[in-house]
Design a binder for these strands. Structure first.
Lengths: 96, 96
DNA sequence: TGACATTATTCGAATATTCGAATATACTAA
DNA sequence: TTAGTATATTCGAATATTCGAATAATGTCA
């Protein structure tokens, strides 16, 4: 394994290492959503959501599609959801 | 899901988001190792290894055991290795 | 005890990440 | 064209992470 591969792996984990990004992935797992929809659900302002989406897009975890003046996002990398599910169970076990 | 759970999940992913920590987990997946052994294999100085081990220990990913003046580490959370394996395949696909 | 080996912690500097606020861009509709 | 809506990007400040170097702590052995 090259050093570069390890950096890539670390980068991927870093993309998942923010509560908001995890929530976004879970939202998109259900269905395609536009930014304004996520703003409402997550109760966060537009620039936050957008910046987190950029990080997820760069890691090819989500994909965007413009329709009119809205941008719809979909979950491209569904494996990310499996990782989140695994870690979620771990977190729940530790909390209670 | 509580906000706290999401923070915990993010924290766990953050623990995996450093090349050295990923390498340490892989090393410990093979067998128990002392810090000095990992220094040699990873070619990193002692304080680096030790600090990364502290992070992994805090997340209960590794466990330590003192024997004489050496401290041996083992992989406590073997699921972390599965996560790494999944992400590794992802990274390898992207690179070539 | 003292010298040595091993590991952990601390310090400050460098770097990266996050955030709120503001601004820029892209599109629609009148 | 202009106004309005939706999204992306930029800015500086605050915070977190990483690193190299130094120091502290723990244990062994003579």
């Amino acid at each position: 394994m090259s050093e570069k591969s390890y950096r890539k792996m670390a980068e991927y984990f870093k993309a998942l290492s923010h509560p908001t990004r995890i929530k976004i992935i879970e939202l998109l797992a259900e269905k395609e959503r536009c930014v304004c929809e996520m703003m409402g659900i997550l109760n966060l302002d537009q620039s936050h959501i957008s910046r987190h989406l950029t990080i997820l897009r760069n890691m090819e975890i989500v994909e965007d599609r413009r329709e009119g003046n809205k941008v719809f996002y979909t979950l491209r990398d569904r494996e990310s959801l499996d990782l989140i599910q695994t870690v979620k169970e771990k977190a729940l076990n530790k909390i209670r």
